[in-house]
């Protein structure tokens, strides 16, 4: 009995040590970048290049996040509430970009928009996505939309469907029931999903690089700027971009956790 307890204590000690070691490693890696960039960030942040990268990152990420919300809400509602054929297949397809490496997603987009009749037709209509700012937005949407759908689906699943039923008997049309009951009750999930999608859009690199390229003062978002400046050895500028992304990530993570980070993966579904 005493031996069993001794083993249990040792086992707990090992698992707790692993948790602390991993946390320490993550913090050490982040702080190294923060300390390296701390002195120069004030100066570098005012340079035209970083200013451009900040503005382009904000512009593209805000648009892509807004589009993600508008598309994710109806899709998530359908997946959570509607009876439809091939639902589980649809779920898997919509999750695909989450499993794909972003660079592969970028290649897929590049071929769709750059090497098909559909891409040429869009180009003729004035909608060009290859090596343009539009390409960054599409890449951000493609990579982040499944994430937003997943968070919102779990949020809607957590809302008791009987509330919708009751709203119907009280006089709501299905649309009114959605806007007056389901949507307000999904508020926290929408906020959490929006913040984390926005943060992920700001940091999107692989897919955007493949589709929009890495051109200074053209498609230079913060992560692209970090990549370009690291490549050319301008560490100050690279660290400034990295620090801005770290600060945004930390704030986003805090807000996400506050408003319902446990929605990821459907753990709140009831």
């Amino acid at each position: 009995m005493a031996k069993k307890r001794w083993w249990q204590e040792k086992f707990n000690l090992i698992t707790v040590s692993f948790a602390y070691l991993v946390s320490f490693f993550i913090l050490a890696a982040i702080f190294t970048v923060v300390i390296k960039g701390f002195n120069s960030i004030g100066k570098v942040i005012l340079t035209p290049e970083i200013q451009f990268a900040i503005k382009l990152s904000l512009y593209t990420s805000l648009i892509s996040t807004a589009v993600c919300i508008l598309i994710a809400i109806p899709v998530a509602y359908a997946l959570a509430r509607a009876d439809m054929p091939f639902k589980s297949l649809l779920n898997t397809i919509l999750d695909l970009p989450l499993a794909l490496p972003p660079v592969v997603s970028g290649v897929c987009l590049l071929l769709v928009f750059g090497a098909t009749d559909f891409g040429s037709w869009l180009d003729d209509m004035g909608l060009s996505f290859v090596f343009t700012v539009n390409g960054i937005i599409i890449a951000q949407i493609f990579v982040n939309l499944p994430f937003m759908i997943r968070v919102l689906k779990s949020t809607i699943l957590a809302v008791n469907p009987r509330l919708d039923f009751i709203a119907r008997t009280l006089g709501c049309t299905p649309t009114q029931a959605f806007f007056r009951v389901t949507l307000p009750l999904s508020k926290n999930g929408i906020i959490a999903g929006t913040v984390i999608t926005w943060a992920r859009a700001l940091g999107e690199f692989g897919a955007a690089l493949m589709l929009a390229g890495a051109t200074r003062f053209k498609t230079e978002t913060l992560p692209i700027s970090l990549f370009l400046n690291m490549s050319t050895g301008d560490l100050d500028a690279a660290m400034a971009a990295a620090n801005i992304l770290i600060i945004i990530s930390l704030i986003s993570l805090f807000i996400f956790n506050k408003f319902g980070g446990d929605f990821i993966g459907g753990s709140r579904a009831s």
């Binding site: 008791n160 039923f165 008997t169 009280l170």
Partner: peptide
Amino acid sequence: ITPEKRGIGFVYQDYALFPH
């Protein structure tokens, strides 16, 4: 007749009050 036009009141076992 759609549910909203049936003139029906519904009381559920779990009450289903709007929590917000």
